[in-house]
Design a protein around this nucleic acid. Structure first.
Lengths: 126, 126
DNA sequence: CTTGAAAATAGGAATAATTCCTATTTTCGG
DNA sequence: CCGAAAATAGGAATTATTCCTATTTTCAAG
């Protein structure tokens, strides 16, 4: 993340403009449409860097490849453990006490977006 | 999950006796020590079935293979997104309102153990 | 401007984890 | 017992991701 590259800029733009939690492959295809020479490694490497610097969020699921989400306002993710679909929702918590308790018991410091909610979605209940 | 098989029984036993969130491979190796003819597919298939029937919990992480945990009392998981280590902790929430809100907004019904907490652990802060 | 070192890239091979396939064996209700 | 359904072993295949190497690009200092 030290030097400028148009590939990285384009990758950021694509994730930012996507509101459906795209996979690395999907991002790759969209970027490729504009810049046919881009390579998968570049996409994967940059996604990793962007996650590390907290610009985007990576969501691992039980089914299918990881998904990426641009960091906006305060929204959380609910994941269906059956089909892997991701739903956004808004909710403001009283984290303080919980965070402190987790920190004490495990040493892990969680952030507001560090909570993933898992369950079964409507259409998978059949 | 209709007919009895000693392979499945052994797999359950191994997960139940493990308190360190073993991977499928680790479970396979332990079962294999007792029953050298067991195959990986059997382990994977049964873990899937057991997760489905809520006897064990599957934990996907950003790094490394999935891990499995026998369902005991009320404990939650905090995952380090850097090294993938999983920590158990205890905390009782007031879920009702939160659950209702998620249900309304996304259609997803989460259970008490359907919340994964992510952050950075102590030793990864260096 | 040049230049040179660090950063980034393309392209594809390699790896890791998991799923899938097929033939065989086991279970268990009637 | 017997037969259908369930489960299995063994390994091939697939999928997602990481790794490798040679080349290109960026950018700060002279």
């Amino acid at each position: 993340m030290k030097n400028y590259s148009r590939q990285r800029e384009e990758i950021i733009k694509v994730v930012k403009d996507s509101y459906n939690h795209p996979t690395a492959e999907e991002i790759y295809m969209i970027v490729k449409a504009k810049d046919p020479a881009v390579s998968r490694s570049t996409v994967y490497r940059n996604l990793g860097l962007l996650v590390e610097s907290n610009l985007i969020k990576q969501i691992s699921m039980k089914v299918g490849p990881d998904r990426y989400d641009y960091m906006r306002k305060n929204h959380n993710h609910a994941v269906c453990t059956k089909c892997g679909k991701i739903f956004d929702f808004e909710y403001s918590f009283e984290y303080d006490e919980l965070q402190k308790s987790i920190k004490e018991q495990t040493g892990i410091e969680i952030s507001n977006d560090g909570i993933v909610f898992e369950g079964i979605c409507d259409s998978c209940k059949n």
